[in-house]
Design a protein around this nucleic acid. Structure first.
Lengths: 131, 131
DNA sequence: ATAAGGTTTCCAGTCACGGGAAGGTCAAGG
DNA sequence: CCTTGACCTTCCCGTGACTGGAAACCTTAT
């Protein structure tokens, strides 16, 4: 398989696949002409990476998860640890965004949104509505 | 006021304040020795920027909000438009994170997290638990 | 022979800063 | 007067995870 095929099948852009090779997440073979050639195992790894990334795992998390994936004597506790840390980050981010949302929607609600210059949003930002 | 005072009062790092000057968000004066000197109006702008940033507005949003803040003949509808767009982005991000959270917490729940190698998290990532 | 559509590498840019170096300035103390 | 230490300045590089684009090579079809 050439890069375009594997890009279509994995759902990742070719650029991203090249980048993943550059940082050592995958190691496709090379043809005599220099073209990358991807085995099924490379495609599986890329699909794995795409899913892990879509769950918000960092590249370094992905590297650790890939290593665990390939280590048949791993302990599932190690995987769970990585996943729980990511879950904590997600929950913290959600909480942060919900706080932003509350403040911002209060401001938005208070603003008439018409042609007049008076604006509670600007007043809030100027005087400390959020912190 | 020198940069350190205004950093303390605004809660922004001095580096950030210099950066904001570099990109034209503020224009502090200069002393003869080259030191920046901040007026109260600069401090107010920095506080405004800090709050806008803490609500997730991009730098370009902040630039637009500052312009509206200084334009006494603005229409509050323009401010509200910027804020609503940001609110949409926040809500979209929350929804995305909640989807991640659901998938990931399902995987985490299914994983024993002990010394054995069997791991539903890795299986899920390998076989398409998320998309 | 040429055109189209692959592929390669390399370089630069993104966003909003943060780290750190090299050097200038200022006030206090000896 | 000299030094110390705390400021301040500019400059450049690095971050994360790519994305865009240029220049050049390869393959296949016409």
């Amino acid at each position: 398989m050439n890069i375009k095929d594997v890009a279509e099948k994995s759902g990742l852009p070719a650029k991203t696949i090249r980048y993943y090779e550059e940082i050592g997440l995958i190691r496709p073979l090379r043809q005599a002409n220099g073209y990358r050639v991807f085995r099924d195992s490379d495609l599986h790894k890329l699909a794995f990476l795409g899913r892990a990334r879509s769950l918000g795992f960092s590249i370094e998390d992905c590297r650790a998860l890939m290593a665990l994936y390939e280590d048949k004597s791993r302990a599932s506790a190690d995987v769970k640890g990585v996943a729980l840390a990511q879950l904590d980050r997600i929950e913290a981010k959600i909480a942060e965004l919900q706080a932003m949302k509350r403040t911002l929607s209060d401001l938005v609600t208070a603003c008439a949104g018409d042609g007049r210059p008076e604006c509670p949003i600007l007043v809030g930002l100027a005087e400390g509505a959020c912190c």
